[in-house]
Computed example of a mutant assay.
Amino acid sequence: MSADISSKLNRLLSTQPSGIVLCSSWLVENGYSLDLQQRYKKSQWFESIGAGALIRYGDHVDYLGGLHAMQTQLDLSVHPGGKTALGLQGKAHYLEFSAKHAQLFGAQGEHVPLWFKKRDWSVDVKCTLSNFLPAEIGLTEITHKQFTVKVSDPARAIMECLYLAPKSQSLLEAYELMEGLNNLRPASVQKLLEVCNSVKVKRLFLYMADKANHAWMQYLDLSRVNLGTGKRAIVASGVYIAKYQITVPKELESME
């Protein structure tokens, strides 16, 4: 291997942490041609995990290492959301948090690369693409291994839970999660409520926060939040909550 090729390899190994995916297109943009990538693979510095994706040879890369690549190299908004995001931030420890499932959210119209979708990450990864919240707000960074990943902050994460409810997320469990969120920042909640375009999510969020008697509720200006008009039945048969014009399960309303 020539000195120049070796120098570029050393630079790549020293600037990029282990545990992540390296996207072939990003490598090309940064001066690592497809031919050079092939040489690195032949020399067993890197190995392919699918079309357009490499990892260090023998490296253990989990789905968060794949997400890091999508966020930092492909500029996608895909991120852990809902209960997964709460679990990664220690906000779901009192519930059964299964490491076998990962719920991701991304913007509608984004294309998750095939290498990510086809890869066996040893967890059941589900990705919901929606514009019910803008892609750029309500995110925070967590450190995982030697790199960082953007995930939904607790306020956005609980809204994502409610977006999935009741079909893919239990409303009772969502309320248990909401009960633990007694230190949300009112300014962050206010902004999310103002830009959220799902009436169901906003009404459920306020109903549950109200029911949990969270102190931060008193600092919200609901006159700036569009809660839509008319009644909304979250479930077919249940209890009607006049204040928020929603019908919720009897078991939820009766929870202490």
Rank of each mutant, 00 (worst) to 15 (best):
K231L: 12
K202W: 14
L227N: 08
V235Y: 00
G52I: 04
A236V: 11
Y57S: 09
Q44C: 14
G238M: 12
Y57T: 09
E110L: 10
D62T: 15
R119W: 09
R56P: 00
L133N: 01
H60D: 14
I137R: 05
V151E: 01
V123Y: 04
V123C: 13
S2C: 14
I241R: 00
H144I: 02
E96C: 10
L181Q: 15
S18V: 10
V78E: 00
V189E: 00
K200Q: 12
R56L: 05
K91N: 11
H68M: 14
W45I: 05
S48G: 08
L64W: 06
L74Q: 08
Y240A: 02
Q169R: 13
A236H: 11
D59V: 13
L162A: 05
M217T: 02
Q89N: 09
M70I: 11
S130H: 07
H144P: 01
Q38G: 15
V151A: 03
V189Q: 01
G19R: 05
L36W: 02
S43N: 09
S6G: 04
H214E: 10
L139T: 10
I55L: 03
D4Q: 13
A212E: 03
S254A: 10
G65A: 06
G230S: 14
M70S: 04
G109N: 14
V151Q: 01
Y207C: 05
V239Q: 02
M255S: 08
V248G: 00
V78L: 03
A135M: 11
L252I: 07
V61A: 01
E47D: 12
L204T: 04
S77E: 09
Q169S: 08
M70L: 15
S7D: 01
H144N: 06
R39D: 10
Y57G: 04
Q218N: 13
L204G: 00
T140F: 07
F105A: 04
D35A: 13
G81N: 04
H144A: 01
D153P: 04
Q108K: 15
S130R: 02
S25F: 14
D120Q: 11
I55A: 03
K243R: 15
G90T: 08
G58E: 02
P249M: 03
M208T: 12
Y240R: 12
G106S: 11
N213M: 14
V61D: 00
G31R: 10
I20V: 15
G109T: 13
I234A: 01
C196Y: 00
Y244Q: 00
K200L: 03
E110Y: 15
Q71T: 07
E179S: 15
G230V: 12
A165R: 00
T128D: 06
A92L: 10
Q190C: 09
A51Y: 11
A157K: 08
Q89K: 06
T140Y: 03
V149Q: 01
A155M: 06
